[in-house]
């Protein structure tokens, strides 16, 4: 639909649609937002500790989605199959662990290769930022060239289920039939919706407890508030930075699993849009603030759905980013607007 036909459409704003299916748009928006929030945590934690945007975090997420898809392919081949509840749950458990480990390892790799050597050298922030962008492109391209890379080792035939047509959409051939659990405002809330939302909230609570109650968590807050003073307390900043990347990776792995449950397919550039959205969520909530990432993510997910209900799906990104600009004009530090270090228990 181009602009002129859109403007000539009599019902430009279909508010009644949102009104009648309010619960459906809101619940699915929350589920989407929960995924944004989990990815946003990675951005916000690294920012809190280093005051740097980790542009490679979108790829940390993307590798997690592939880990899940590969695990499913390994157990079921490429044919779609519906499974009994028990075996589906078991499979999802394996997928979750695989995605968490994969994303965490990629995050640690990014820290080790793209960050640590530059931080040790005292490089300017811009240099580190560019290095992270380079890491992002490299990781996305490696995934997109995985057929060739397998070919170097003569494995492209054996692994063809995993690597062939590396630049195309890769589906995870698992069929999860969402079951209606209860009805809310005319919308049948499904077990998938609930799983996604509660898994995200659970991870958030766990992280909050870790950062505010544990010794290493206190070290992270200390580095975020004053790196030199933290060093004088005996905090090993290299270890804190590594832990920060690790946690971000684990959260991105969970997000990747939840994303695949809902969307079911991925691609070597799948991280880009989710990454931008999650980064937006982090900024909206107040970058550097863990709870801000949650608030920003859920808010963005819901707004995106409401926006697409009112303005049409094509306009949802325009709507959400205009909203971002408006929010930052009113509250430049984001909705919650405190740093990771200053966030109080």
């Amino acid at each position: 639909m181009d602009l002129s036909t859109l403007l000539n459409t009599p019902q430009l704003l279909t508010v009644s649609d949102l009104y009648h299916s309010f619960a459906a748009y809101t619940i699915t928006g929350l589920a989407l937002g929960a995924i944004y929030a989990l990815v946003a945590l990675g951005y916000t934690m690294v920012y809190g500790v280093l005051q740097l945007i980790n542009f490679a975090h979108s790829e940390v997420f993307m590798y997690g989605t592939f880990a899940m898809a590969w695990v499913v392919t390994y157990f079921h081949g490429t044919a779609s199959s519906g499974q009994s509840l028990g075996s589906t749950l078991g499979l999802l458990g394996v997928c979750l662990v695989a995605a968490m480990i994969t994303s965490a390892l990629v995050a640690l790799l990014v820290e080790r290769v793209a960050y640590r050597p530059l931080i040790r050298r005292g490089s300017p922030k811009l240099v580190i930022l560019i290095s992270a962008i380079g890491a992002s492109f490299s990781l996305a391209e490696v995934m997109g060239l995985r057929d060739r890379i397998a070919g170097w080792f003569g494995l492209d035939g054996k692994l063809s289920n995993y690597v062939s047509q590396a630049r195309n959409v890769y589906s995870s051939p698992i069929t999860i039939n969402p079951h209606k659990v209860f009805e809310l405002g005319g919308y049948g809330v499904t077990d998938v919706d609930l799983t996604v939302i509660f898994a995200a909230l659970l991870m958030m609570v766990a992280l909050d407890v870790f950062v505010n109650r544990s010794r290493l968590g206190r070290g992270i807050r200390a580095v975020a508030q004053d790196p030199e003073a933290a060093a004088l307390m005996g905090v090993n900043s290299t270890r804190v930075i590594r832990t920060t990347f690790l946690i971000g990776g684990i959260m991105a792995g969970v997000a990747a699993t939840l994303y695949m449950i809902r969307i079911g397919s991925t691609r070597n550039d799948a991280g880009f849009i989710i990454g931008i959205k999650a980064f937006t969520a982090a900024v909206m909530g107040g970058i550097g603030n863990l709870r801000g990432a949650l608030v920003g993510g859920l808010f963005l997910g819901v707004m995106e759905n409401w926006g697409s209900a009112v303005f049409g799906t094509q306009w949802k990104d325009v709507f959400t980013f205009v909203l971002l600009v408006v929010i930052l004009l009113i509250r430049p530090t984001g909705i919650l607007g405190e740093s990771l270090g200053k966030a109080r228990a």
């Binding site: 807050r221 003073a229 966030a343």
Partner: peptide, 8 residues
């Protein structure tokens, strides 16, 4: 300049 952690 003291260097206390202001948010703690």
């Amino acid at each position: 300049g003291r260097g206390c952690f202001p948010g703690m």
